[in-house]
């Protein structure tokens, strides 16, 4: 076996996996707090890709050509606007249905997903869009013929993703907001009885999920350069798979699940077959659900009194 190919696939897998992990956070946190799968989350990620392109175009229009500066501004703008999307979606489509059957918000989520896709398709056109390359260059290790390379963008993806996950972990573990989120997740009614505005916490969770998806959207767009209104679907389903793999409802689980899924998928396409990588990912999901239904780090559902 060629070790440099293995190492290269691991590098690629880590990059892909951190993206899955970032998006999976949105699925897992929302599931943890209100027990619904937010099927519109993938499309929120798609919206953030368009916002990235718009932000970059605007910045270029202003004549800003310093790549680090442009990336920071784009990240901030995209996270903010995508956060507003996340907040509005919860407010419009899920909150009015709270207290109705479990299925109602799920259907509403699918509706929102369709609305977002069609709205973007109408307003931005159906053709794939692109952004100019802001960062180019690679780091190479090895000889002329046997080498492992990592582009600057890949390094950026891994660094920014891990930083975002670390920051979020800190917020959830050690801040007052994080304690309120965990309390609301464990027993929403009890949290309210203690004076926590649980509706506000739920909104915050949607904003956090959307902001994380926005980071992923910016990074992926900078990496691939091209996107269309349908990218949210497959990526969303993959990130959802990652969340289930790690144990849905568990924050470290989503990150771990994302990275593992990225690694497996990348190794599979490197050593077995590229065309069947999605089949492999979903087969993995089926196996996890059969042998460990609560995921790697998830806890089995406990009946609440």
């Amino acid at each position: 076996m060629d070790w440099h190919i293995l190492a290269q696939q691991l590098v690629n897998g880590l990059t892909l996996g951190s993206i899955y992990g970032l998006i999976a956070i949105g699925y897992t946190m929302v599931y943890g707090i209100i027990g619904m799968i937010n099927f519109a989350h993938g499309d929120v990620y798609m919206v953030s890709a368009y916002l990235t392109a718009i932000a970059i175009a605007v910045l270029t229009g202003f004549g800003i050509d310093s790549a680090p500066f442009a990336i920071v501004i784009t990240l901030a703008l995209t996270m903010f606007i995508t956060g507003v999307y996340g907040w509005s979606i919860e407010r419009v489509a899920y909150r009015p249905l709270r207290g109705s059957t479990r299925l109602a918000p799920l259907i509403s989520a699918i509706g929102i997903s369709l609305v977002l896709q069609n709205y973007v398709q109408l307003s931005q056109g159906a053709k794939p869009q692109g952004v100019p390359t802001l960062v180019s260059g690679t780091v190479r290790l090895g000889t002329e013929t046997n080498f492992v390379q990592m582009t600057y963008i890949q390094i950026l993806i891994v660094v920014v993703s891990f930083a975002a996950m670390a920051a979020l972990t800190w917020i959830i573990r050690s801040t007052s907001l994080g304690r309120q989120c965990r309390a609301t997740q464990q027993d929403r009614k009890m949290a309210a009885i203690l004076g926590i505005d649980t509706d506000r916490i739920i909104s915050t969770v949607f904003v956090i999920g959307a902001a994380m998806a926005a980071i992923a959207g910016v990074l992926v767009t900078l990496n691939y350069g091209s996107f269309d209104f349908f990218i949210g679907f497959v990526t969303g389903i993959k990130a959802f798979t990652a969340a289930v793999l790690g144990g849905i409802g568990s924050l470290p689980g989503a990150m771990l699940g994302g990275i593992l899924l990225g690694l497996f998928e990348s190794l599979f396409s490197g050593f077995v077959n590229t065309d069947y990588k999605d089949v492999f990912s979903f087969a993995l999901l089926v196996l996890v659900l059969i042998f460990r239904p609560s995921g790697l780090l998830g806890r089995p559902e406990v009946e609440k009194v």
């Binding site: 007052s176 304690r179 309120q180 965990r182 309390a183 464990q186 203690l194 004076g195």
Partner: peptide, 15 residues
Amino acid sequence: FREMSVVENLLVAQH
């Protein structure tokens, strides 16, 4: 909140 520490249970009530 069974999965939070004792002191966190008290902190969360004071937010």
